[in-house]
């Protein structure tokens, strides 16, 4: 029934899912784990405060990553942070504007901004541009004209990263960037004031909500990470002695 070559990975996946469910159950029952501070996420509040003081807008982009395939988790994390930053900006009286390059994200963003701003919501707060080239040129022009106080660049970012982050830097905006896409991580780190690398971005939903259930999933992720590191060490030691330790997970 289960494809032969995938049997071991299927079992490992089921074990991981069980571990996630256990950690979430444990956290909900009253033992939520501690989560370390993520400077990039804390900086979003500071950037919004800066926008209020300067009376300038905050711009937000999730890049050209969509809600499918490998981009999905990063885009979803980016959208979670859009909801968080929109409600924070609305409560402080700052204007947050979202530039989307993926049509599916427009109604989601619209709903988030409407919920956050209520009667103060303006349709101009969301701009849709249909392609990567259009996104880059729109952002370069808009940032040059409007000089935003803060620029958030969070999601599955492609090579628009360097252009958007550079436009933000030229405009003097405080920048928070984050992605799990390998080739864009160096640009985010070098060009943004604060950066979220890889899983930091994916843990953002749990970090900003502080819900025990979500924090439980972070604990499970950490346990799985330690198991992975242990397996890598066993494999390396085994290789030194001529033993193929990867057979542990083949059955």
């Amino acid at each position: 029934m289960i494809k032969g070559e995938l049997a071991s990975t299927f079992v490992v996946l089921l074990v991981f899912i069980a571990l996630y469910l256990y950690c979430i159950y444990r956290a909900v029952r009253g033992k939520p784990p501690m989560i370390r501070k993520v400077p990039g996420l804390d900086a979003m509040e500071e950037a919004i405060g800066r926008a209020v003081e300067m009376g300038r807008p905050i711009y937000y982009s999730t890049g050209v990553g969509s809600l499918d395939g490998g981009d999905m988790p990063m885009t979803m994390a980016g959208m979670t942070l859009l909801g968080y930053s929109a409600s924070l900006a609305a409560s402080r009286g700052a204007e947050l504007r979202y530039i989307a390059a993926v049509p599916q994200l427009v109604p989601i963003a619209e709903d988030m901004l409407r919920t956050a701003y209520r009667d103060a919501y303006k349709p101009e707060q969301i701009t849709f541009v249909p392609s990567q080239v259009a996104l880059m040129s729109t952002i370069v022009g808009t940032y040059e004209r409007e000089k935003p106080a803060a620029n958030f660049l969070l999601g599955a970012l492609y090579w628009e990263t360097v252009v958007i982050a550079e436009a933000g830097a030229r405009a003097g905006a405080m920048q928070v960037g984050g992605t799990g896409r390998l080739y864009q991580v160096p640009f985010v780190v070098a060009l943004c004031d604060y950066s979220l690398i890889g899983e930091e971005l994916l843990a953002a939903g749990a970090y900003v909500s502080r819900e025990p259930s979500q924090l439980g999933s972070i604990l499970a992720s950490d346990i799985i990470r330690f198991i992975t590191i242990a397996l890598i060490i066993i494999y390396v030691i085994g290789s030194l002695f001529g033993v193929d330790a990867s057979t542990i997970l083949r059955f």
């Binding site: 979803m76 709903d111 799985i224 990470r225």
Partner: peptide, 29 residues
């Protein structure tokens, strides 16, 4: 780079579980 990739893969499972259980609702607006 593989360290980052493994971290993202683990985070992806975490997000899928959170969505499945209804804790992560970003895609519903």
């Amino acid at each position: 780079s593989r360290g980052i990739v493994i971290g993202v893969a683990i985070g992806t499972i975490a997000i899928a579980i959170r969505v499945l259980l209804g804790y992560e609702k970003a895609y519903t607006g």
